[in-house]
């Protein structure tokens, strides 16, 4: 599973960081999301789905690898 984030949409709520701290971080200056790992391990799937689904700004996009 591949992960992409849209920093323009991000509202810095930080929910993704709580759910998957190895994948997401926040910039110090404004809290905007930073992607640490764009191809996280498969066992992160559930956490990533939750992160994408609960992102208030819908700034996380997941794509299945074909």
């Amino acid at each position: 599973m591949k992960v992409a984030v849209d920093q323009d949409k991000c509202c810095a709520a930080g929910i993704c960081v709580t759910l998957a701290p190895d994948v997401f971080d926040q910039r110090d200056e404004d809290g905007v999301v930073v992607l640490l790992d764009n191809e996280p391990p498969e066992d992160m799937r559930a956490a990533l789905r939750e992160a994408a689904g609960s992102c208030p700004a819908m700034a996380i996009e997941l794509t299945e690898e074909s």
Binding site: V17, R27, V32
Partner: peptide, 9 residues
């Protein structure tokens, strides 16, 4: 964004 960085977890 002027303040959001100061309210993160």
């Amino acid at each position: 964004r002027m303040v959001s960085g100061m309210f993160t977890r």
